[in-house]
Design a protein around this nucleic acid. Structure first.
Length: 302
DNA sequence: ACAATATCCTGCGAGC
DNA sequence: TGCTCGCAGGATATTG
């Protein structure tokens, strides 16, 4: 499940590669992606013929700024991947008719032909340079929207997002103010996109381990010292993960199909039963809400 | 007003 | 070996 560092890596990569490319047509076998649109036609009308001007990110949403003041928004949710491939002229009609998903032609500089995720391509944007942007998505949870800038940026998906944690304007003062009237369990609060955007299950676990705070603690009871630690490690850990191009745990890949390297530094996430790298005791896993939380029972006292 | 639970999906691993 | 079953999870809707 891509979170802020993964989505940042992906959108930066796509920005480099897709700038000034025009979308000539699309193919999908899952029109349910287009939650904002009546059907596939309604979606494709919005996007065909538009040029990609810039790719960026807000929270975990990827924003493609298009010509004619349009935006394409893609949220990868848990299993979404965006991969760039090439399509050959002589095969293009066949691909357009029915994409069987068995194989696709990767770019020379990376996309792995044998990568298992190539089996789950559900949506393809064909570009005017002979390449394609493919969405692979095992569980079909991804979200794909297109419309005029004003409309997309005013959707709850964007408008209800909390501050960007790595924004310079996100000072400790701002962070502290957020907590003043906040109630609830810290793990859930960190993952609340309306509170702070971009943090999900992996990084909330990591941040709390670094801060030595039990994931079930209520935010009402957190001391100043503890809030300072959380603030510090949000910034530090997300930055570090971006430097390492994201987490390779689970099925994350960047736009060239590469894994990130953050997983080498993962302390608790998906390490149940392994020794804590600080104190050696076994990492535990509990349920918070419907999510699993990983923590060290010694370093992170309740 | 808030919190817990169901929903969407499907590959995978556990268990028999 | 081959089957069934239940888990995983981000965001949103629905129920308690």
């Amino acid at each position: 499940m891509p979170e802020l560092p993964e989505v940042e890596t992906i959108s930066k990569g796509l920005d480099k590669k897709l700038k000034n490319k025009k979308i000539t047509r699309i193919w999908t076998d899952w029109p349910k992606y287009f939650k904002l649109h009546k059907n596939e036609k309604d979606f494709s009308r919005q996007i065909i013929g538009k040029k990609i001007l810039k790719v960026s990110r807000r929270g975990k949403n990827i924003l493609f700024y298009l010509s004619e003041k349009h935006i394409l928004l893609i949220h990868l949710k848990m299993t979404g991947h965006l991969l760039i491939g090439e399509w050959k002229q002589n095969r293009s009609e066949k691909l357009g008719e029915k994409w069987q998903g068995q194989k696709w032609v990767p770019t020379k500089d990376g996309g792995p032909l044998t990568d298992p995720f190539n089996r789950f391509i559900r949506l393809i944007f064909f570009l005017d340079n002979g390449k394609m942007l493919a969405l692979s998505d095992v569980r079909r949870f991804a979200k794909v929207l297109c419309g005029v800038e004003e409309k997309i940026l005013n959707l709850p998906d964007i408008k209800n997002l909390g501050p960007e944690p790595l924004d310079k304007r996100f000072t400790y003062k701002k962070f502290g103010e957020l907590f003043k009237n906040k109630k609830g369990v810290i793990k859930s609060v960190l993952m609340d996109q309306g509170f702070i955007s971009g943090i999900g299950n992996i990084y909330s676990d990591e941040i709390l381990w670094l801060s030595k705070i039990h994931p079930s603690r209520r935010v009402e009871g957190l001391k100043e010292k503890e809030l300072i630690a959380i603030y510090k490690y949000i910034k530090q850990n997300l930055k570090k993960a971006i430097r390492l191009r994201g987490t390779s745990f689970s099925d994350y890949r960047d736009s060239e199909g590469r894994r990130g390297k953050y997983s080498l530094f993962r302390r608790v996430y998906q390490r149940e039963g392994e020794p804590c790298s600080r104190c050696g005791i076994e990492i535990k896993r509990i349920k918070i809400g419907a999510r699993s939380a990983h923590f060290c029972p010694i370093c992170q006292k309740e």
